[in-house]
Design a protein around this nucleic acid. Structure first.
Lengths: 199, 199
DNA sequence: GCAAATTGCCTAAATGGTTTAGGTTTTGTA
DNA sequence: TACAAAACCTAAACCATTTAGGCAATTTGC
């Protein structure tokens, strides 16, 4: 009988496709074997089980996403960089919902530390170099941006904003614009309670 | 043999506990049956299967969360309301991670429309009444807040901010503060930069 | 070109979750 | 007391996961 020509590479590539088609949670060693017309057990020489499969899809996704971000960020700063980073993020999630979900798969600390995730985080921090925010405040800002991007995209993918006006893309663009204004005009940490107006 | 005294109510209550203890994804009809010392099939007269089980936990969580938010929001406006809403959200997620995950379980549209989720959304919108933002801009702001809250909390639960300074609670408080400033000083929709026209 | 070693894919089987079809026991109530 | 409904059961089918061990296709060393 002819062989299917499996390899870890091909397996993960197809698994990522599968994730985009049917959802990351539905990616299963069985489904992948079916896709290759091969017995389930055959995959266990290439993969270390279902957790390993998911982990590898996650690593692939993180790398793809980070590469895109790095490419778009080159030569941009400030608001342009912010918009580019944000759009890469959302576009990737919309084009590859399964991979995006994979990129949120919980990795054990060592794996995470060796993944493209840290490069991605560094890229986000580098976007903030275009604004005048430093120290702990910069960390707060990074966490804010990460939360907005991830939060918006996952709510959008879950269908949260689907059938209601205004269009989700409009809200996204406006939110990024508003965030840019916020970063340019980052409020003092001291005590902002008095009615601040100008800026 | 004595009966366990099952009912849909008790089942869902225990299932929510179970979710908080072992994680929402691990909540399974089998695990729940084990918890009650009962055969798996016995639960199928009370539940319509595993999807139904998860859906009901989700509905419970949405209701609890919304009730808390409503209680804390009573008599507050503006910044106080924003902080209260945000803290209820994060506290609930930290105290009940399984239930929180459940509250993000995807419901079919009719179920979602009949859930406490819509009440929760209305509450969030009511928080914005303390600021001078209307129309589409208000919707953008609602989406921004929802994204930040959900995004931050889920990144935090995934361990994203765990072992690094500054403390996650500090970032949270600061972010809410910054959002309040942003809402009080919501930038104009017209381009502050030149060179672009609205969509 | 051939034998040996390796690798790729296989069958078989155990474990455990899901779900349905039906049976029996308990319990509340007429 | 008797009966109907509810609560819980056994049995069995289906599917995903995982391991153990086997044979065949390919690659390698000569």
């Amino acid at each position: 009988m002819p062989r299917a020509g499996l390899s870890a590479e091909r397996l993960i590539g197809e698994a990522a496709e599968l994730a985009d088609e049917v959802g990351f949670e539905q990616v299963t060693v069985s489904a992948l074997a079916r896709r290759f017309g091969v017995r389930v057990a055959s995959l266990y020489s290439h993969l270390d089980g279902s957790h390993d499969l998911r982990t590898r899809i996650a690593l692939l996704a993180l790398e793809e996403l980070t590469d895109r971000a790095a490419a778009e960020l080159a030569g941009r700063a400030g608001r342009d960089a912010l918009v580019a980073f944000a759009d890469v993020y959302r576009d990737y999630a919309r084009q590859h919902p399964g991979r995006y979900a994979a990129s949120r798969y919980r990795l054990d600390p060592e794996t995470a530390a060796a993944s493209a995730g840290v490069r991605h985080a560094r890229l986000l921090r580098s976007v903030l170099r275009g604004y005048d925010i430093t120290g702990d405040e910069q960390t707060h800002a990074v966490r804010l941006l990460g939360s907005v991007f991830h939060g918006y995209v996952s709510l959008e993918l879950e269908g949260g904003f689907s059938h209601s006006a205004p269009d989700s893309g409009r809200s996204w663009a406006r939110i990024v614009e508003v965030l840019d204004a916020l970063l340019r005009n980052w409020p003092d940490a001291a005590q902002p309670d008095a009615s601040q107006q100008g800026s």
